[in-house]
Design a protein around this nucleic acid. Sequence first.
DNA 1: GAGTACGCCGTACAACGTACACTGTTATAG
DNA 2: CTATAACAGTGTACGTTGTACGGCGTACTC
Lengths: 243, 243
Amino acid sequence: MPLPLIDLLWRDHPDAPTGGRRGPRARVTTGSVLDAALRLADADGLAGVTVRHLAADLGVSTMSVYTHVNSRDDLLVLMVDAAHLRMERIPHGRAGWRSRVRRVAEANLALIQQHPWLLDVVDDRSALGPGTIAKYDHELEALEALGLEDTDRDAALTFVLDFVRASARALRPQPRAGEMAEHWPEWGPRLATYLGDDHPLARRVGAAAGEALGGPGSPSHAWDFGLTRVLDGLDALSSGGRP
Amino acid sequence: MPLPLIDLLWRDHPDAPTGGRRGPRARVTTGSVLDAALRLADADGLAGVTVRHLAADLGVSTMSVYTHVNSRDDLLVLMVDAAHLRMERIPHGRAGWRSRVRRVAEANLALIQQHPWLLDVVDDRSALGPGTIAKYDHELEALEALGLEDTDRDAALTFVLDFVRASARALRPQPRAGEMAEHWPEWGPRLATYLGDDHPLARRVGAAAGEALGGPGSPSHAWDFGLTRVLDGLDALSSGGRP
DNA sequence: GAGTACGCCGTACAACGTACACTGTTATAG
DNA sequence: CTATAACAGTGTACGTTGTACGGCGTACTC
């Protein structure tokens, strides 16, 4: 049986237990399993990360994967922490907090667009891993100039990162988009019939939002809009409430 | 084969196709399948909503479910729209936009806490259903006094609702919480060893946030904090940018 | 050289969504 | 009145998933 999750997360730390040295040499390691899992997830999404696929990619039998990882759920946690560990951490420099936070948001958006499967992992246990903790530490620094007490500082970071996650989900090409477009010639008129003259506001705003989504200009209006809202919302903290 | 999804969503509309009248009378309907599915989901979560369980609850065979619903994915879309349809829609009255938006947020939080499985449905096709459209219309009204153009009005609502979804996810009792607590006596000291003196900021803020989470006072500091941030962020729109 | 810890593997099981072929029932067409 | 077509419902079966269990062979320790 592999080591507990906490030790697998910190497997590269000098104090991490190594286990005995007997028996045949391992042909794969937890690290190489993770490398393969990340490749698979980036290519085929989380659903493509099955234990069997993983084992085939590694050239071992299905059950051998469980020698290096306790369960698929644990694997996902390890993957998230690995992605966080590899994330580039740009020094904050002398920029003001607004630029800092903006860069944190953009870096997280880039991370999720590079690894869209991050949106599909709901397990929070990666918070115990070296990558996630380092990321947390670095991003907390961005909020320094806001002068918040600790609980608010954590809440502010959560606020920013939750916005990024939601926006990234909206920006992600929906798997159903193709199916929707396919059925639209049939469904569109039918929906118009059902709606009739009801909900004129929803119809007007929905149409405008739909057009803007596929239209020219910025790839996502909602991202710019939301990010400015986030920054202005935090701004109200340091400028002593609303005027 | 059942009707296409768009017609199932609008099954209660007068213009909805009813299908022929031949054959034995249906012992269950799309509506009763949904009722059972909602009960199951509220009780056991989305994972408890299996076609077999559903059929057993309804007293029919497994495959009979597919007479009234095209697929499990479609079922989830119908469930979401049904939940949106049954949501109470409080008139906005004469309240200012801040109170209106606050109430929209609180109503959505209540909705998700009543039906936590809503967080697990990622399919956006419910946007075509009567419940989701009525909800959209009603919530857009809350933003009237902000004087936004249509695309911004949609973006603002998305901004609010995304915040609610993320907060609701954080407030939801994590399925892993029990397991974490169980392993904590073993993992806590180990984590302390690994961390050593690194990341003092993350350790301090993380500890404060962790304490606040289980501590006395408001059930969630992050909710109050974030909601005020959301409102202040929107406020900056109407007060003409930051001072 | 004996014992043991360990990597690896084959088989097997329960659960899932659902395709398919079928039976039986009922309203309609001739 | 009968033949037909449309429909609700069922049983079986397939492919896929995660993973428990027991066995086999290897390499280190005594």
